[in-house]
Amino acid sequence: MSENLTVHLNDDRLHDIRTATAFEATGSFAVVLNNGDAPVHVHLRLDDELSSVASIRANNHFVGADTARQVNVEVEDGPRPVDGQLKIVTGHGAETDYVSVSIVDPEESEETVAVDEALAAPAPDRDRDDDADGGLGGVDPDLGANAPLAALGLFAVAVAASTALLADSAVVLVGVGAVIASLAAAGYLLVR
């Protein structure tokens, strides 16, 4: 979404409108209605040129005292640039202001991303059966990094088994079974 167009209402006097005289957007944008100390009805209208590529879901808006309201202007694909007028009316016609709006093409981005040439080389094949694995005979060299986890798992199985032997309860046996099943699944995932 492009930058917002801010409109100040009721700042100096009742139904007063203060905003930029011109606004430029590359796509959809919001009209932010910042209201002062009195509630106000605001009517927003796009002229024919802007209506060819943009639309406002509702034209009439109530903005309470000391509040802000955002009205989205949806910009569709179409010819660019498009220049037109946004009409802003307060107090049922008491005040009217216009903003010259230009819908332009987004500038072409010249930003590039640096890519390391090492990314172009294919990844090493982990399924090879040659001696590139350090003579481990097809064993994954990362398996040694999982040895502490495997030892902890074996310790948990030993504790679970000894608890099952000492306790004579069906609940404990179900718990021990769950621990052993969880450790078996974790072991499978480590070896896989």
Rank of each mutant, 00 (worst) to 15 (best):
I56S: 01
V73H: 04
N72H: 08
E49W: 01
R45H: 11
P81H: 02
G78P: 04
A54V: 09
V89Y: 00
K87A: 11
N35G: 03
A25D: 03
V73R: 00
R80H: 05
F29C: 09
A54C: 10
T26M: 09
S28L: 08
F62K: 11
I56F: 02
G84Y: 00
T21W: 08
G84C: 05
P79Y: 03
S51P: 04
A22W: 03
P39H: 03
Q85S: 10
V42T: 07
A30S: 15
V82I: 15
G64E: 15
A65D: 11
S55W: 05
H61D: 07
I56Q: 03
P39I: 07
H92S: 13
V71G: 04
V32T: 07
G64V: 04
V82E: 00
L46H: 04
S51R: 15
R80L: 08
P79G: 09
A38S: 13
R80T: 11
S28E: 06
A68Q: 15
E74V: 13
P39T: 06
G64L: 09
L50C: 09
D37H: 12
D66Q: 15
V31G: 00
D37W: 09
Q85H: 11
V89C: 02
V89H: 03
R45Q: 14
S51K: 11
E76S: 13
L46E: 03
E76F: 10
S28K: 09
V73E: 02
E95K: 11
T19I: 07
A30Q: 13
R57A: 15
G36F: 08
T19P: 04
G78F: 07
A68I: 05
N60Q: 13
G78W: 06
L46F: 10
N60I: 08
A25P: 02
V82H: 02
H41P: 02
R80N: 06
N59L: 08
R57P: 06
A54M: 07
Q85R: 11
A22D: 14
E95S: 12
T26P: 01
A20V: 09
T90L: 06
V42E: 01
D48L: 06
T19C: 15
D77C: 00
D83H: 10
V71S: 06
V32Y: 03
D48F: 02
P39Y: 06
E24M: 10
L33K: 01
G27L: 05
S28G: 15
F29I: 08
I88E: 02
G91H: 07
F23S: 01
T90N: 06
Q70N: 12
H92W: 10
Q85L: 14
V63Y: 02
P79V: 03
A20Q: 14
A94F: 10
R45N: 12
V53W: 05
R69Y: 05
S55I: 01
T19K: 04
T19V: 13
H61Q: 14
V40P: 00
D83K: 08
N72F: 09
V71W: 06
S52V: 05
T67E: 15
T96C: 03
T96G: 03
R45F: 04
T90Y: 02
N60W: 08
I56W: 04
T96I: 13
D77M: 04
T67W: 08
G84E: 00
S55M: 11
Q70D: 12
F62D: 15
A38K: 10
E49R: 14
H41L: 12
L33C: 10
V71T: 04
A30R: 14
